[in-house]
Computed example of a mutant assay.
Amino acid sequence: MLIDDFLNYLRYERNYSDYTVKAYSKDLNQFEEYVKSCQEGVFVPDIIDADIVRDWIVCLLDEKISPVSVNRKLSSLKSFFKFLMKQKIVSVNPLRLIVGPKTKKPLPYFVKEGDMEALLDGDGFDEDFEGVRDHLVIEMLYDTGLRRSELIGIKDADVDFDASLLKVTGKRNKQRLIPFAEGLKDLMLAYTEVRNREVGAQSEWFFVRKNGQQLSAGMVYNIVKKKLSDIPTLAKRSPHVLRHSFATSMLNNGAELNAVKELLGHSSLASTSVYTHTTFEELKKVYHAHPRAKKGGNYGN
C-alpha cells in the first residue's frame, strides 16, 4: 500500500513518466520481497534498518547484478524513504549512511561523423513509405539528439515548418523547442507527403506505422539497430547511441556545453559534461597520429 502511494505521488505530483514509475515499482517490489523473506512475510518500513539494506545490496551483487543496476535500485529506495519521512510514516531514514558499490562509468558510445555521413547519404533506404520514414527516424535522432520516447511522442501540431522549430516533451513532461535545419526540414516534408498519401492523415502522431497507429518504442529501436548494423566497427547500436553521437558532434564542432545541455533537455551540466570526455578521447587519438607523439610515447595515459 505504501509503495502504491509513493508511485502515485511520482505519477501525479511529480509527473514522472510511466516508464520511470514502472522502474521504481520493480525496484521497490523486489526490495519488499527480500524484506519479507527475511522477516517472516512482514514488510514494515519503520523497522527496516541499515543492516537490512546492506544485506540486500550484498544479495544483489551475489546474484551478479551490476553495480550500476544496484545503485539505481538504491536510488529508488532512497526516494521511497524520503517520501515516507515526509509523510511522517518513518522517523529514521535507514539509507542516510548507505553508500552504493563503486562503478566505473563508461564513456558513451557514439558514431563517427564520417560513418554517419556515409549511412545517411548512401542508398541503404527504400523509397517507399517505410523507407522514407526509417531514413527520417535515423536523421532526426542524429540531427536533434532526441530521446526515443521524445521522438515517438511528436505530434503533427508540434512541428512548425515555418519557424523550423520542433516542440518536444521530455522527462517529467518538460517541454523544449528544438530548431531544425533545412536538410532535415526537406526530409520531414517528404515524409509527411508520402505518409498522407499512402497511410492517410487521420492520426495526430507524426511518426506512424503503415496502419496509421503511433510508431512504438520497440519499432524505433529495431529501425536504428538494423541501420547501425551497416557500421561493422560500432560496438553498440541503439537510439541512445545516436543521441550520444549528436552531442559529441556538436561539441567537436565548437558548440558551447550549455547550449548542448539545453538541446538535450538535461537538468544539469553534469549530465552533459560526460561528452567532453568523449571528445577529449578523440583529441588524444588525433594527437597519437602525429609523428612527434609517436616518438614521445604515452601521451595522456
Rank of each mutant, 00 (worst) to 15 (best):
L61F: 00
D126K: 11
V90F: 04
K88W: 03
F180A: 07
R147V: 14
G212H: 13
V199C: 15
E130R: 06
S267W: 00
L2R: 10
C59I: 10
V220R: 13
K284V: 04
L166C: 09
L7C: 10
E193L: 15
M219R: 13
N222G: 04
L184V: 12
D46I: 09
M219L: 11
F83T: 08
A270N: 04
D158H: 11
E13C: 10
L97R: 06
H135V: 09
V208T: 15
L2W: 08
F207D: 12
H240T: 00
N29R: 03
F180Q: 14
G41Y: 04
S229I: 01
S91L: 08
N211H: 11
G265T: 01
S79K: 08
D162I: 05
V208L: 11
D5P: 05
T272R: 09
G124F: 07
T248C: 05
K88F: 02
K225I: 04
A190Q: 14
I89F: 13
F206D: 06
I138Y: 14
V168D: 02
R172V: 01
G265D: 00
E127I: 06
L146H: 07
D160C: 07
L151T: 01
V68E: 03
S25N: 10
T169H: 06
M219Y: 12
L77I: 11
N29K: 01
N252A: 13
K167D: 02
N253R: 05
I47D: 07
W56K: 12
S229L: 08
M219A: 14
L269A: 12
P291D: 07
F80Q: 07
L187D: 07
V260K: 14
E198H: 12
P94L: 06
D49S: 09
V21K: 04
I57S: 15
R14H: 06
H277Y: 09
G296Q: 11
T278L: 10
P101E: 13
V137I: 15
S17R: 09
R197D: 14
E193T: 15
L146Y: 12
K26Y: 08
T248L: 00
K167R: 12
L264E: 01
V208S: 11
Q30P: 00
A247E: 11
T169R: 05
